[in-house]
């Protein structure tokens, strides 16, 4: 009975959403702010990856909020899963093949993550993606070695310093420029590593922050396994 009601409700809901989107033409160029970004972002921000230019420069304040949401989620998760007696992960050690292979792959995964967030303004990628890649590398070590531990103090220091770097760069824009998060460094030539002013700096800070946060989050969750 409940399934029938649910299907009926969802049918009505889906029909109306689809009726809304039928009017949006598919696969053609919409005349909106995106065109302006595509045509002028390289001159304005120096970043050749327009998505990065939007996320970090045009909507930089929004990204600061996003980083804050992620920070709040990590803190809330730590608070919800907090336990007075210090817990240990109780996973079994993985087999020898997995252990040796993950020891070999782990530094390479960290390197790939660093590459992705350092080149955020040139290639597809950026701070969030690079941080997530680093966290997957640590997750690989967590599930293959039972005794592999992360230093939680160091993680929170990295996290706080990275977040403060982001805010400091924003305030520097307010002091030496005209607005919060304004680009105060020279733009350089596009398509080189040292270009786009503060965008790589912000994305490196975001990469460290997201990597540390997701690592702490995974550690917290894995420690609750009985």
């Amino acid at each position: 009975m409940r399934k029938v009601i649910a299907v009926l409700l969802l049918g009505i809901f889906g029909y109306y959403i689809f009726a809304l989107f039928v009017n949006v033409p598919f696969g053609v160029r919409h005349d909106n702010v995106g065109q302006h970004y595509l045509e002028h972002s390289v001159q304005e921000t120096g970043a050749v990856n327009i998505v990065t230019a939007i996320v970090v420069s045009h909507r930089g304040f929004d990204t600061l909020g996003e980083v804050t949401v992620l920070f709040l989620a990590a803190t809330g998760l730590g608070a919800i899963l907090y336990d007075k007696k210090g817990k240990k992960r109780r996973l079994q050690n993985a087999s020898l093949i997995v252990k040796v292979a993950s020891k070999l792959i782990y530094p390479l995964i960290i390197l790939l993550g660093a590459y992705v967030f350092v080149h955020g303004h040139l290639t597809p990628g950026g701070g969030f993606q690079g941080g997530a890649i680093i966290a997957t590398g640590v997750l690989l070590m967590f599930i293959s070695y039972r005794r592999f531990e992360t230093n939680h103090n160091a993680l929170s220091w990295v996290e706080s310093l990275a977040g403060m770097t982001f805010v400091t760069i924003g305030l520097a824009g307010l002091i030496w420029g005209t607005s919060f998060l304004q680009n105060i460094l020279p733009l350089g030539t596009p398509n080189t590593l040292l270009s786009a002013g503060v965008i790589p700096l912000i994305y490196i800070a975001v990469g460290f922050k997201v990597g540390a946060e997701l690592t702490a989050l995974l550690d917290n969750m894995l420690k609750t396994i009985k």
Partner: peptide, 8 residues
């Protein structure tokens, strides 16, 4: 190029 705003 495709519209970058939805991707961001």
């Amino acid at each position: 190029m495709v519209d970058p705003v939805p991707q961001a």
